[in-house]
Design a protein around this nucleic acid. Structure first.
Ligand SMILES: [Mn+2]
Ligand SMILES: [Mn+2]
Ligand SMILES: [Zn+2]
Ligand SMILES: [Zn+2]
Lengths: 128, 128
DNA sequence: AAATTAATAGTAATGATTACTATTAATTAC
DNA sequence: GTAATTAATAGTAATCATTACTATTAATTT
């Protein structure tokens, strides 16, 4: 099914070897150092393919369209992976965890964003 | 400083009154029902302005560029709001919370995404 | 070595968002 | 109330990340 290519090997090697969480463009720039004419399309295609294969992951969280919320206060959400709807989750915000992370890392933590993923009730019952 | 406009009032009223977490386009479609020639630019401008004023919020989480990760397993991140860098957070993934949310909501929760926000060490020390 | 076809390079298209600009309308000054 | 001021708008153009397309290249099989 899949054929090997030096482009894909190099992309996987680089992404596996860095903790910089690079963007597609960053990966492309890095790749050009060893494969000068590698195309940006190849980088995108292989990042997506390697993700599908479970070899790497993507920090997407939201999809391309931003969503707005009449509630200006921090709260948690659930996003259905099938229908895309976003629901509020009535769970108290854990302020302690920000302090713990701040202590452990030395970072100044102002807040955190927590989003649950899965299937909403409608999408569980609908078959296919 | 700010003048009132029926467009901005209508946008705020709608976003405050729904729990659908609408996209900018969804807001625009809804607005056209009462202000038929309202422009999409006006919707975007006012959503951003209302967010700045703290009256609504945005479920952005990531910025426009997606980032990739050589670690394919679920783990937590810290994103610096000043320099934009993303760091791994060495905190065990809380699997219990998924079960609790599933019990409370009836949703099928497959996983959750947790991202801390604030200032990294470098950006705390750099003045200005 | 030839045939097959997955993968690539390069470019065009897409789609959400932002920028621009002439016009409209809310507010202020008289 | 009317004119002056200028923030806000409508409509359109530009931007930018990502995806789609297509002729060519190259990995694999026969
Ligand atoms: Mn919400
Ligand atoms: Mn990571
Ligand atoms: Zn659903
Ligand atoms: Zn920083």
């Amino acid at each position: 099914m899949f054929r090997e290519s030096k482009q894909r090997e190099a992309i996987l090697r680089f992404v596996k070897g860095t903790s910089s969480h690079p963007t597609a463009n960053h990966v492309h720039e890095e790749m050009r150092k060893e494969i000068p004419n590698i195309s940006l399309g190849t980088v995108y295609r292989n990042l997506k393919l390697l993700k599908r294969e479970g070899k790497i992951s993507e920090l997407d969280i939201a999809d391309s369209k931003s969503r707005f919320d009449g509630n200006p206060h921090n709260h948690y959400h659930f996003r259905c992976e099938r229908c895309g709807r976003v629901f509020d989750v009535d769970e108290p915000v854990n302020k302690e965890i920000d302090k713990r992370i701040a202590r452990k890392t030395g970072f100044k933590v102002s807040h955190h964003i927590l989003e649950f993923r899965g299937l909403c009730r409608d999408c569980q019952s609908s078959n296919e």
